[in-house]
C-alpha cells in the first residue's frame, strides 16, 4: 500500500538537480541538525558524497564530526533534515544493524575489535551473511567464505596473527583489523574515524595506500586530524565548523581559505 505512495512522496521531498548527479550520489545529507540540551552539535549540515569518492572530513574538536558519523550510522537521530543513502534508503528510519546491512561500515575513533576473539573470528563475525539468530546457531563457513577471510587477512597484513587473540594485537594492528572487518561486510560506504591515530610513520603510509586502493570500488569518508595524512590521500576535503560545512574543495583550495585558516589551520 505504501509502496505506491512512497516514490511520489520522496520525489517531492528530494531536491535532485538532475538525474545524472543523483545516480552517482552514495550519501546525501541535507539540512541536518542535532542538539544536545541546547548545544547544537550539528547545525543545518549538508553534505554529498559521490560513488567511489574518497572524502576527508576535518575540523576542530566539537565541530560535529563524530555526531555526523552517529547520524549516518543511526546511533543518533537528527532533530531535522534528511539523510539518504544510495538513492532510495532513508537512513533516519533504520536501526544501526539495518544500516550496516544496507551497506555502510563504520570504524570507530578508538579501535574497537572483539578483544576476546581471535583475529580470524573477528573477521568471521564481520562476514557479510545472514545475521539472524537461527542462522548463527547452525552456521558453518563455506570454503568460499574461508577464501574471503584469508584474502582479507592478507590485505591487512595479519595472516600470521590469524589465531592470536585480538586483544593482544598492537594498536596499529587493531586499526587494520577493524578496517578488515569493515571490508568483510562488503560495504558500499566506509566511514573511517581517525584511521592513523597512534600509528608509526610506516604504518600510516601503508594505511594510506590501503584506503586509496579501496576508493573507487567503495566510497570512503575519512575523519582525520593528521593534516599530512589528509593531504596525501585526499582529493576533496570538507571542513566542518560548529556543526556545519565551512569550506569544501581540493586540499590546496581549502588550505588557503581565510576562514579555515582562522578556525583550524591558522593556529
Amino acid at each position: 500500500m505504501n509502496a505506491a505512495a512512497a516514490p511520489e512522496e520522496s520525489a517531492i521531498r528530494r531536491p535532485v538537480p538532475d538525474g545524472q548527479a543523483w545516480r552517482d550520489t552514495i550519501l546525501y545529507l541535507d539540512g541536518v541538525s542535532v542538539s544536545f540540551d541546547g548545544f547544537k552539535a550539528l547545525n543545518n549540515l549538508s553534505l554529498v558524497i559521490e560513488e567511489g569518492e574518497l572524502r576527508c572530513v576535518i575540523g576542530p574538536n566539537g565541530a560535529g564530526k563524530t555526531t555526523m558519523m552517529d547520524v549516518i550510522t543511526g546511533k543518533t537521530r537528527p532533530d531535522q533534515g534528511e539523510v539518504f543513502f544510495d538513492g532510495e534508503t532513508d537512513l533516519t528510519k533504520l536501526t544501526e544493524p539495518e544500516i550496516a546491512h544496507a551497506g555502510i561500515g563504520r570504524k570507530f575513533q578508538r579501535p574497537t575489535v572483539f578483544e576476546n576473539h581471535t583475529v580470524f573470528e573477528n573477521l568471521e563475525l564481520a562476514l557479510k551473511t545472514d545475521k539472524s539468530v537461527w542462522h548463527s546457531l547452525f552456521a558453518r563457513l563455506s570454503s568460499e567464505q574461508y577464501g574471503r577471510i584469508a584474502e582479507t587477512l592478507a590485505l591487512i597484513n595479519l595472516t600470521g596473527q590469524a589465531h592470536k587473540r585480538a586483544g593482544l594485537l598492537s594498536h596499529g594492528q587493531k586499526q587494520w583489523l577493524e578496517i578488515g572487518m569493515l571490508l568483510m561486510q562488503q560495504p558500499k560506504l566506509l566511514l573511517v574515524d581517525e584511521p592513523v591515530a597512534g600509528m608509526t610513520e610506516e604504518e600510516t603510509e601503508r594505511t594510506g595506500e590501503l584506503l586509496q586502493g579501496l576508493a573507487g570500488a567503495h566510497s570512503i569518508v575519512v575523519v582525520e586530524h593528521d593534516m599530512k595524512f589528509v593531504s596525501r590521500i585526499a582529493h576533496k576535503v570538507t571542513v566542518l565548523h560548529e556543526g556545519r560545512v565551512l569550506a569544501e574543495g581540493p586540499m590546496e583550495k581549502v588550505q588557503n581559505d581565510e576562514r579555515v585558516i582562522e578556525v583550524y589551520l591558522g593556529r
Binding site: T73, K75, T95, E96, P97, E98, A100, H101, G105, R106, F108, T112, V113, F114, E115, N116, H117, L125, A126, K128, K131, M181, Q185
Partner: peptide, 12 residues
C-alpha cells in the same frame, strides 16, 4: 565485549 561494534557489523 563490544556491543556497538557488533551492531555496526550488522547484527541486531
Amino acid at each position: 565485549d563490544a556491543e556497538s561494534r557488533l551492531m555496526f557489523s550488522g547484527y541486531d
